[in-house]
Amino acid sequence: MKVPIFPLNSVVLPRGKVPLQLFEPRYIDMLTRCLKDDHGFVITLLREGAETGRVASFYETGTYVRIIDFQQLDNGLLGITVEGDAKVSITNSWQQDDGLNLGEIEFLPAEAPADIPTVFHELPSVLRALFRHPVIHELGMSVDYEDARDVGWRLTELLPLDRQEKQHLMEMQDPLARLSHLQALLEALEEGQ
């Protein structure tokens, strides 16, 4: 499957929502094609370069997203909201003349649902606290606080972690291993305060 690739300085995971502002012609054209053809695109983390630059390297694992809302913003830019659909592997990529990155992707196997073991009982509480922030609350995301996948995905997106750490957590396919890693990171953050 051939799709546009949108390198960002952040990660999005399945069921996560992200607001974006589009102003570059290559991304406005991408949006038009995606809406016309009723398909999404891939958001992947930048490895090097800038979001607005033409030269950028990015990670090969990203998330296929769908556009769920768009509107003209007060600042004159086009605002869209995307929702993560599934994790993907970018098997081949290239750049069009206008600077838009395209790639061939393969969908990764869906993570198996898992209940949250007692040892991780504090993680849903941390996530609930994050969801009380007005900006996050405004996104209108629904979270299953008993699903290890959902809790791990949202914490990965929302916690103030290093970009490479977020990518590592995103690439994990075992929801319980992700929770274990997140718990260790939170304990390290608490000790560092």
Rank of each mutant, 00 (worst) to 15 (best):
E146H: 10
V135S: 13
Q96P: 01
V11H: 01
V3M: 09
P109K: 13
E48C: 03
V143M: 10
E106L: 06
E122C: 05
H121L: 08
R178T: 06
A50I: 00
T61A: 09
I116V: 14
T118V: 11
A86E: 03
I28D: 06
Y64E: 13
K36M: 11
G84W: 02
D38R: 14
L102W: 05
D150M: 15
E106I: 05
E48H: 09
L22I: 13
P7V: 05
L77I: 11
G49K: 02
D69E: 15
S89H: 12
E60N: 08
D85N: 08
R26Q: 11
L46W: 01
Q164G: 05
P7Q: 08
R163S: 15
V12M: 03
T81C: 11
V126Y: 07
R132N: 04
V126M: 03
L20S: 07
M30P: 00
S89I: 06
L159P: 02
V65H: 04
T52L: 11
E51C: 03
M172Q: 15
L20W: 02
D74T: 14
L8D: 00
D74W: 09
D98K: 14
L182F: 10
E24C: 13
W153K: 07
E104C: 00
N9L: 07
Q95D: 06
L22H: 11
E122T: 12
D85K: 10
E165L: 14
A177L: 14
L31F: 11
E104T: 01
G62N: 12
Q167T: 04
E190P: 00
M170E: 09
Y27A: 00
P117D: 15
